[in-house]
Structure formats: structure tokens, C-alpha cells
Design a binder for these strands. Structure first.
Length: 271
DNA sequence: ATGGTAGGTACCCTA
């Protein structure tokens, strides 16, 4: 089973990039963030034709929007609303696999970016981001136990480790890498003893990024990246984790997303 | 210290 997450930054604009990605990587399950479209305008036909007959989409006009596109059917599909808002940031699906006594849960998340000013007193967007991560931490701990098979993935908009950003020192006061966000994300990670699937393969001494700003003239040359996109697994899923890939080459495709897809391979069968 | 780019929508918001 290959599972992929991608902040696509408009699924309507980049449907052809998505189809190319599906063709090249052949993921079984694709989780998207920032689809930026109401469900009635989601390019479902193209996705279905590409072999992804099972879809769970939850979008809105202009902002946010998450989706799960799958080759295999879902047992359950859920929409969750966070912080009293209806802003399309969390969907979940359950899929059947003989590896576990219960269905594997996949939670697709788009954590708020948080605006520019890292002060919740003056910046509502940053306050919302902190509240969102707080709520996720409490909710995971209340809802599930660490011995259940779960995946949480998506654009978390936080780069937790020093080598998840191009300069730890220079980004300490930049939203996405401030100590308060990193601390909250760690609490969320502790909620179900989540394991970082990508850092399972890439040691913390090595740089790893999944996002490069559009504002750099030459993103590869300046390489001022951040690792904002994550795949987390609960411990029961970890023995099945065999490969990962950060699909960095997509950043050079024409009209790229500023995020690149992140892929994990789990050695388990789907039904 | 500043401004650089991109997408969606409607002339400004969010990233």
C-alpha cells in the first residue's frame, strides 16, 4: 500500500499535475490539502478515470479543502470540524486490511498556516493555529488509543526539528518554526505516541524539506525549504513501513505547487 | 529592514 499526501494549492489548476503524479507513483490512496474548490467543482471525472473510484472530498470556495482519493473502497468516511469553524481541514477514512483486527484509519489534515505575526494576542490566525493543534492533541487522546492502527498525514504547517528548516536560528521567530508551535505539535504527537514516518528514514542530522516559497528566484539554488508536510503512524503500523519518498522533482514541473508530495509505503494488503 | 510570488476572487484575501 502506497499512501501519498500533497498540498496541491488548487486541484482545478493542477489536475494534470495530479494525474501525472498518480501515473508515475501509483499511490493507492492520495490525500490532498488546499483543493480550494467546492465539491461540485472538484474534477472527479478525471480522477475516477485514472483509477481512483473511491473519493471523500470536502471543499469550499477559495480556501482550504481536503480530499482522499483511493483505488480501494472505504469502510467509513468522516468529516470533522475544528475550533467551531466549518473550514474543511480534516477528513478521515477507514480501510480494511487483514493486517489488523480493525480497519486502518487515515486522517487527512490541513492545519492553519497561522499568518505572519507569531503572537496570538495580535494575530487571530496564529491563535487559531495554536487552538487547532491543541484541539487535535486532546481529540486524538480522547477518541483513540495508541494501540489502534492510525495514519495522520497532511500539511501540518509546522517544521518541528532544527533540520526541518534551512536555518533554525533565522526561523525561530517565523511562523511555522516558532518554539510555541513546535511545542504544541509535540503535544499532538504525544497524544497517540505518533511516529514520524519520514524521520524514520532520514536522520535528524540531515535536512529534509517539503515546501519552498514561490518567492525565491531559484528555489533549488537558494534551497530555503521547510518540512511542513508529514506522515505520522501509530506504533502498530510501524512494522509495515518499508519506504518513503519526498517527490521533490514535482517542484520543477510547470506551474508547480509550493509543496511537494510525500509518500510512504506500507507492506500491507488492502481489501 | 524589506519585499519578493502565487491562487482565487472580485479589486483584496490567504498562503
Amino acid at each position: 500500500m502506497k499512501i501519498l499526501t500533497w498540498n496541491i494549492n488548487s486541484v482545478r489548476l493542477r489536475i494534470n499535475l495530479l494525474l501525472r503524479l498518480m501515473e508515475e507513483e501509483q499511490p493507492d490512496i492520495v490525500c490532498l490539502q488546499e483543493t480550494k474548490t467546492p465539491d461540485e467543482h472538484f474534477p472527479l471525472e478525471a480522477v475516477t478515470k485514472a483509477g481512483y473510484a473511491h473519493t471523500h472530498i470536502h471543499g469550499m470556495k477559495s480556501y482550504n479543502g481536503v480530499a482522499v482519493l483511493s483505488k480501494v473502497p472505504f469502510k467509513t468516511q468522516e468529516i470533522w470540524h475544528r475550533c467551531g469553524k466549518e473550514d474543511c481541514r480534516h477528513v478521515a477514512v477507514h480501510v480494511d486490511t487483514p493486517a489488523f483486527a480493525e480497519p486502518l484509519q487515515i486522517h487527512c489534515l490541513y492545519i492553519p498556516a497561522g499568518g505572519d505575526e507569531p503572537d496570538p494576542e495580535v494575530n487571530d490566525k496564529f491563535a487559531h493555529k495554536l487552538d487547532f493543534v491543541d484541539e487535535m492533541a486532546r481529540w486524538f487522546a480522547d477518541q483513540y488509543t495508541p494501540d489502534q492502527p492510525l495514519v495522520a498525514l497532511g500539511d501540518f504547517n509546522i517544521a518541528p526539528l532544527e533540520n526541518d528548516v534551512w536555518s533554525h536560528k533565522q526561523l525561530l521567530k517565523v511562523v511555522s518554526h516558532t518554539p510555541v508551535e513546535v511545542e504544541k505539535l509535540k503535544e499532538m504527537q504525544n497524544s497517540l505516541d505518533w511516529q514520524d514516518a519520514i524521520r524514520h528514514f532520514i536522520p535528524p542530522e540531515d535536512k529534509a524539506y517539503t515546501w519552498w516559497s514561490y518567492r525565491n528566484r531559484d528555489w533549488r539554488k537558494s534551497d530555503r525549504g521547510r518540512r511542513l508536510d508529514h506522515i505520522w503512524l501509530t506504533k502498530p503500523v510501524m512494522p509495515f513501513l518499508t519506504h518513503h519518498k519526498i517527490c521533490i522533482d514535482t517542484r520543477d514541473w510547470s506551474q508547480p505547487s509550493d509543496h511537494v508530495p510525500v509518500l510512504a509505503r506500507l507492506d500491507l494488503q488492502l481489501q
